[in-house]
């Protein structure tokens, strides 16, 4: 079975259109904050009235991916569309607000309007509701590489005939406390800015018309304990091994950082220089912009080294 990428959507600090963002990155532009994004611009629903920034990002990216795939809401050609949301931090802003209300004013000061939006799967639930997607719905937590876990799970759902298409969404919202903590403990390189946004990929089985390409191989992720293990784990990752065996040399290598991989002739792309660190969202941006940069029939290897949990890779063909 071939899994195809039929639609993509992004929300990035450099814009919401893939081509425009790619051009701005090529010009050397850099940004870390997303301006106001109102998901109602893409899809109208009362469900979005009180939702968080992370949900606005997720719904905006998801709606673009659905539109990009040429689907309309409730499209009967895809009766069962699943949603898998991959998050690294979840809705921190509302969680902090709600917790602060309780700490400062006791239970009576805590707004019941905020609490439901603090739940990690709120974004996936809103996407299903506003886009009418009634297939399997799941939210995964993890470090940056969780976006690839979500792609692997989507492949499972398609392969096992649990869904006709699966929308994989990875949203992330910035939080000052987290940035402060990460800086203080040197969990990230100083030159990398903390970013936010979302990416969405709509995957379908081979009978669908491929729009962006196909997923050749996607790993479930391998845990690492010491940084010294990372090169070997990465080299042994099925997607990386597949890339090494390609008859046509790899043209694009989209990396999350300083992965030591040698693919002579492959153009190395690291979007973090332009778009910063957006954790799970960033990993799916790597896939999107790797594909955007590739020519037809080119293979793109995308690798991700998560902060403290796993290394993973995905091989896609434009």
């Amino acid at each position: 079975m071939t899994v195809t990428i039929t639609g993509i959507g992004v929300v990035t600090p450099l814009g919401l259109e893939v081509r425009e963002v790619a051009e701005r990155m090529a010009r050397g532009e850099r940004a870390n904050r997303v301006g106001p994004v109102d998901a109602a611009q893409f899809v109208r629903s009362d469900r979005l009235r009180r939702c968080t920034r992370i949900t606005h990002f997720a719904v905006a990216a998801a709606a673009q991916a659905v539109r990009d795939a040429g689907l309309s809401i409730g499209d009967e050609s895809y009766p069962r569309v699943g949603v898998i949301s991959a998050v690294s931090k979840g809705p921190i802003e509302y969680s902090r607000k709600f917790h602060a209300q309780f700490v400062r004013g006791g239970a009576k000061g805590a707004s019941p309007m905020l609490f439901p939006e603090t739940v990690a799967n709120a974004s996936a639930s809103h996407i299903a509701s506003v886009l009418g997607l009634t297939g399997p719905n799941t939210t995964l937590f993890g470090d940056a590489a969780v976006g690839f876990n979500a792609l692997a799970m989507a492949r499972d759902f398609l392969k096992w005939n649990l869904a006709d298409a699966v929308l994989v969404v990875a949203p992330h919202e910035h939080d000052d406390i987290f940035e402060d903590a990460y800086r203080r403990f040197r969990w990230l390189l100083p030159k990398i800015g903390f970013s936010e946004g979302a990416a969405a990929l709509l995957l379908a089985r081979d009978e669908a018309t491929p729009h962006w390409g196909e997923i050749v191989e996607v790993d479930r992720g391998q845990p690492w304990r010491r940084r010294s293990e990372i090169p070997n784990l990465l080299a042994a990752a099925p997607a990386v091994s597949s890339a090494a065996r390609l008859q046509v040399p790899l043209k694009t290598l989209s990396v999350s950082g300083d992965e030591k991989l040698s693919f002579p002739g492959a153009q190395r792309l690291c979007i973090k220089d332009s778009l910063g660190e957006a954790f799970a969202a960033g990993a799916l941006w790597q896939v999107v912009f790797g594909l955007q940069q590739a020519q037809t029939h080119d293979n793109v290897l995308v690798t991700c080294v998560g902060l403290n949990e796993q290394v993973s890779a995905v091989l896609v063909r434009r």
Binding site: V87, N137, T139, L140, F141, N149, M153, R220, G221, P223
Partner: peptide
């Protein structure tokens, strides 16, 4: 093996 953490409330 790999870790998967599901957060479905």
């Amino acid at each position: 093996g790999p870790i998967l953490t599901l957060a479905n409330a």
